[in-house]
Simulated scan of single mutants.
Amino acid sequence: MNYIFSSVAGDSLTLSSTLAILGCALLTGLFISCVYLFTHKESGCQPSFPITLIMLPAIIATVILLVGSNVARAFSLAGAFSLIRFRSAPGDPKDIAYVFFTVAVGLAAGMGFLTYAMLFALILCLAMILLEKTGFGHPKTEAMTLKITIPEDLNYEGVFDDILKEYTASYKMRRVRTTEFGTLFELVYRIQLKKNASQKAFIDGIRCRNGNMNVSLVLNEYEDKVYE
């Protein structure tokens, strides 16, 4: 039984072991990529990221194959993780978990532990699906960004508090700034609407208070567009 979980890499590279390792890395990467697409079918994703998840285990496995010794493997591990570029652009934080996931699978495959690589991929993918289906960590309502424009002669301190308390489960002012050469104020709130709150009634209430000036309500995943 133990031979199933033993390394196929051996002391030297052979064509058969190399093909087996790369094939396993690509197949597990494809499996992880399919699970990623399944768990993101509602929110969507960048088309290039699932392709990256397929290729990354094979790339990491190739690096490990070419290195060879245990000491060098430790350095290659540090180098592999240092190559990951964490972007400041908005995105799903789960993407980082998927990147580390594929790197770990690639390391296992590159060291020749193909059964472990497939086992890790299966268990963690099942965990990802289970967490997605149970909605673990998902808030009951979406966090949103509210931007309100008001005239400079309107005292903004507490002017919308009664409306916000009526329609939101929580709210917090994040920013105040002047616009149009100081003739207008722009208020930015982070809010969570109540479950059955009407967005139209909420915005209409604010428009009646701010003189029918601009009001925008944006999901936090698109928050950068609010500040354009």
Rank of each mutant, 00 (worst) to 15 (best):
D11C: 00
F31P: 11
F38G: 04
L26F: 14
S12K: 02
L37D: 08
L56G: 05
S16I: 06
L53I: 00
C24P: 11
T28W: 00
K41Q: 15
F49M: 02
A9H: 01
A20V: 00
F38L: 13
C34G: 10
E42R: 02
S17A: 15
L19E: 06
L30R: 03
I54D: 12
T28I: 03
S43D: 12
L27A: 15
L13D: 14
K41M: 14
G23S: 05
F31N: 09
S33A: 15
Y36F: 14
L53N: 01
H40Q: 13
T52P: 11
C45Y: 10
T39P: 11
I32P: 12
L37S: 14
P50H: 01
K41H: 14
S17F: 06
Y36S: 07
F38H: 11
F38I: 06
V35G: 05
L27W: 07
L53E: 02
T28S: 12
F38W: 15
G10A: 10
G10H: 05
T18M: 12
T52C: 09
F38N: 08
T52L: 04
G10C: 04
Q46I: 01
G29L: 04
L15I: 07
F31Y: 15
P47M: 03
T18Y: 06
T18D: 09
A25Q: 11
S33D: 10
T18H: 06
T14H: 10
L53S: 00
C45P: 00
T18E: 07
S12A: 09
T39L: 06
T14W: 06
L56I: 12
L15S: 11
T28Q: 03
F38Q: 05
C34N: 08
L19A: 14
A9R: 08
M55G: 06
T14C: 07
L22I: 15
S48T: 10
Q46W: 00
H40G: 08
L26I: 09
L22G: 12
P57I: 01
S33W: 03
S43R: 02
A20L: 06
P57R: 00
G10L: 05
Q46K: 08
M55Y: 10
G29C: 10
F31L: 11
S33T: 11
S17R: 03
G29Y: 09
C34E: 13
S48L: 03
P50D: 12
A20D: 12
